[in-house]
């Protein structure tokens, strides 16, 4: 497939670098300031070397990448909330041109799922978004394989930063502020960790899953409830002191930031789970439990973030479109 990759952060960059390994060709690569377009296929290594040197991807207009002759658009620009722009417009452009869109950007699928479903219905192209939930872990496709109508709920640990902090607090008996500083030194937490520790990131992923469960269970999208971040009940981990983890441990339990998605809604918050239970993954691991009507519970776990990890989910989606 011929790919146009929008966004040149860790994920966009890895998609461009790995595309060849998966048998695809990158015809355009753009960030917010510039673009490199070559209908015969970009020399990705050269383009990225130039970006490292000059700070821009190329001297083309970013809009050129959107207009290029590609089969699938990879939307890997930073996640934005509310109107989810400019990601949403990028995807709309691709669909209106009857091209596929593969998202790593959570905004459009979390905030404007119904509109996206309508655009897809009128398009020759399809929308895929495995990379938006749980990085490398095949969660959306597992739900689709089970049949969303036969899945009653999905719950799990979907933010590596929050999980790292909680598992370190429990293991070392340290307080939140201390472990956060350590996580920032290790590059596990960002300088502004709000998105992760307040539960927003986990909530976006659960909102996306709730939309998949809801729209996947009906024949007519008009019958489905759609969810956005504002519909989620979200609590982060800042209020969990070390003493709470100690009390939990005395009783063979621990605390994890758990997100729950059903067709009725989304809840994210710190929850008590068995210390050695399935959901008590440690460090930056992610895990999702999928409750099925006829096949019990499925557990899927792995790396929930990272450039190559998330890129592998994007490229798996591209493979599904062939």
């Amino acid at each position: 497939m011929r790919l146009a990759v929008l966004g040149c952060g860790a994920v966009g960059r890895s998609v461009a670098e790995l595309a060849g390994d998966y048998g695809h060709e990158v015809v355009a690569l753009a960030d917010s300031r510039g673009a490199a377009v070559d209908e015969d296929g970009l020399a990705v290594a050269d383009v990225l070397a130039e970006k490292d040197e000059t700070g821009v991807v190329g001297d083309g207009d970013p809009a050129d990448a959107l207009a290029a002759d590609y089969d699938a658009l990879v939307e890997a620009t930073p996640t934005t909330l509310g109107d989810a722009e400019p990601g949403f417009s990028h995807v709309r452009t691709a669909l209106e041109r009857d091209r596929h869109a593969v998202l790593a950007n959570k905004g459009p699928v979390a905030e404007r799922f119904r509109e996206l479903a309508a655009l897809e219905a009128d398009s020759g192209g399809s929308v895929r978004f495995e990379a938006t939930v749980g990085g490398a872990i095949p969660i959306v496709s597992t739900v689709e394989d089970c049949g969303p109508a036969h899945v009653t709920a999905a719950r799990g640990v979907l933010n590596g930063t929050a999980n790292f902090i909680l598992s370190r607090m429990a293991a070392e008996g340290l307080d939140y502020e201390h472990v956060l500083a350590e996580a920032q030194d290790l590059g596990v937490a960002e300088a502004d960790p709000t998105f992760d520790v307040d539960g927003t990131d986990a909530a976006l992923k659960c909102v996306i899953l709730a939309n998949v469960l809801s729209f996947g269970a009906v024949d007519d999208p008009a019958d489905a409830d759609d969810f956005a971040l504002a519909d989620a009940e979200v609590e982060g981990i800042r209020n969990v002191p070390g003493s709470a983890l100690e009390l939990a441990a005395e009783d063979g339990r621990t605390v994890r930031l758990v997100g729950e998605a059903t067709r009725e809604g989304v809840r994210v918050g710190p929850r008590l789970v068995p210390e050695n239970g399935t959901l008590a993954v440690t460090g930056t691991q992610n895990i999702v439990q999928i409750e099925t009507s006829h096949a019990g519970r499925l557990n899927v776990s792995g790396r929930g973030a990272g450039g190559p990890e998330t890129a592998s989910a994007v490229l798996a989606d591209v493979g599904r479109l062939e």
């Binding site: 609590e235 969990v240 939990a248 758990v258 729950e260 929850r271 008590l272 789970v273 068995p274 959901l279």
Partner: peptide
């Protein structure tokens, strides 16, 4: 006060 609930429906 904040409540850290057990996971409903889960293994907790």
């Amino acid at each position: 006060l904040h409540v850290v609930e057990p996971l409903a429906g889960g293994e907790a």
